[in-house]
Simulated scan of single mutants.
Amino acid sequence: MARPQLPTAQALAPYLRRIDEARWYSNFGPLLTAFEARLAARFAPGTEIVTCANATQGLALCLQALSLPPGSLCAIPAYTFVATAHAVAAAGLTPWLLDVDPQNWTLQPHAVRAALAGAPGPVSAVIVVAPFGLMPDLAPWLALRAETGIAVVVDAAAAFDALNAAPLPAVVSLHATKALGIGEGGFLATEDADLARRVRELTSFGFRGARESQMPATNAKLSEYAAAVGLAALDAWPHDRLRWLRAARGLRAAMTHLPQVVFQEGWGLSWATSVCCVRLPDGAADAVARDLAAAGVETRAWWGRGCHTHPAFAGCPRGDLTQTDRLGSAVLGLPFRVDLDHAQTGRIAAALAQSVG
């Protein structure tokens, strides 16, 4: 289904030697500082980067740093990976599951505005999700924040390539399965220096330049070893990005004769990501998955039928989820990896053509 590819031992060796020489292994060492600086260079000047153990922690700590009322509602799309909802719960808030736009699979500001009047409690935040790496337009969300005072955070877990500005705090995953991965890890990008400082403190026991804990916090730092992988991954990123795009365009080209198979807007053309999710006719995903399995082609419903179908979040307040239910029955993850070759692409396309053609 997927074969993640992290930097090789040879690519890591120069960075590991630097760790050996410095004998600094964690706690914001020189490699981590360099890694964060290189990440920051991808954004506009003044953007702060705070690395963390994983993106779920990053989201939870960002919400916690915003000092939102405990138990208040945080609106999230029902169509997202469960990590989004877990982060909300970990921050002491209540996930409020709302429906998404059927075309781009994202929560929309106008939908949040419409839902606010009938909200089942005080609403303090919204998490906007970039589905599988497709970044939404953030300008309307900035307007919503300005109008309502509701905090807005972006779950950009899979959007390393597409995220190039952080007017709203955004959290990116560096999990091994992502286009740029380090094994486990994540980072917050934000133009709010005070927020960055608070999240940094929350990743390090609430320490603020001294060994006195200023607030209840956790330990969510990245080690020098994780930073070594990150630096080597960034070294290879320009080449690897082209490989991801080449693999995606090959898959798109192989399916030009299948109008029933719809790719996300811009997927493999203007942005790179590590998964391929296509929309099929409503209700067809399960049958197509069975057909492809019979042909020896694995598939994955990466987000299942939505957060509301998981026992952990079945009791959360929700709006009408008609579009989420439709997407859950229609979206299917196809095999995809950076080194997907012509034969594998042809096999996937042939199996799909046999099922939906």
Rank of each mutant, 00 (worst) to 15 (best):
E21N: 11
T94P: 07
R279I: 00
R300G: 06
L231Q: 03
P102F: 05
F313Q: 02
T309D: 09
K178L: 10
A146N: 08
W237Y: 09
A170N: 06
I49N: 14
Q10G: 14
A210R: 15
T106M: 13
R17K: 15
P109D: 00
D291Q: 13
H175W: 08
E36D: 14
V278M: 07
P317G: 03
A115S: 14
V338N: 10
F336S: 08
T256W: 02
A53E: 04
P317R: 03
I348G: 06
M1I: 06
L12H: 04
P45W: 01
E201L: 09
V153K: 01
A157V: 04
V82N: 06
L39A: 04
S274C: 06
A295V: 05
P7A: 01
F35A: 15
L231N: 02
G71H: 09
V229Q: 14
A350S: 07
L340C: 09
A193M: 04
T80Y: 00
L134Y: 12
Q214D: 11
A170K: 02
H257C: 06
T80I: 02
L188V: 06
A159I: 05
L31D: 03
R249S: 11
G186H: 11
V100M: 00
A176N: 10
V152L: 01
R200E: 09
A232C: 07
E191S: 14
